Simulated assay, not measured.
Amino acid sequence: MRSRVIRRCHQIVVGALLLAPLADVSEGAAAPATPADAMAQAAAPAAIADYRRKLNAYQEARAAFEQEAGAYWNAIADKRRIRSAKRRSHQSITLDDYVLARPPLYEGPHRPINPEPEEGPAPRQRKHIPVVADFLKAAAEQFQFAPQRPRTEIDFKRAYARVAQAYGLTKEQAVRVYSFETGGNGNHDMQSGLSTSRPGSRAISTAIGYNQLLTTNSVELLAEQGDDILRALGEKAARLSGPQRAAMERKIAAIKRMVAYAHSMPDTWSAHEKLADTPKGWAIHALVLDIDVGPLLQTHKLLTSIIFARNKGYARPLTAAELEMMNLTGDGTGLDMVTMPPAMRERVPTANFFQRQGYERNPVAIRHDTVAKLLAVTDARMDSNSAKPGARDLAAAF
Rank of each mutant, 00 (worst) to 15 (best):
P147G: 10
A75E: 02
G120S: 06
A44M: 07
T34F: 02
Y98I: 03
V99D: 02
V175L: 06
A57E: 15
S89D: 05
R87V: 01
F65C: 02
I154C: 07
Q173P: 04
E107T: 15
K171C: 14
F180N: 15
V163F: 13
A36K: 06
S84P: 01
F135T: 01
E118T: 05
P112A: 09
F156V: 09
K127D: 15
F135M: 09
P121F: 03
T170V: 12
A40S: 15
E118W: 03
A77F: 01
R80E: 12
D50A: 15
T34N: 04
R151A: 10
N74C: 04
S89W: 00
P147M: 05
L95E: 05
Q142I: 10
N114V: 11
E66D: 11
R162F: 07
A138V: 12
Y178C: 07
P109S: 03
F156S: 11
F145I: 02
D97Q: 02
T94F: 00
G108I: 01
A164S: 15
P123V: 08
Y167K: 14
R80V: 01
P103I: 08
K157H: 12
F145R: 03
L55E: 06
A49I: 11
N114L: 11
A138W: 04
A138P: 07
T34S: 13
D155L: 08
R111H: 11
G168Y: 04
A85N: 01
A146G: 10
K127H: 12
P150K: 03
A36I: 04
E66A: 12
A63N: 10
A43Y: 01
L136R: 11
E60T: 15
K54N: 13
A138L: 09
A174P: 08
E60N: 14
A85T: 00
R126C: 05
K137S: 12
A164D: 11
Q165T: 05
Q125K: 10
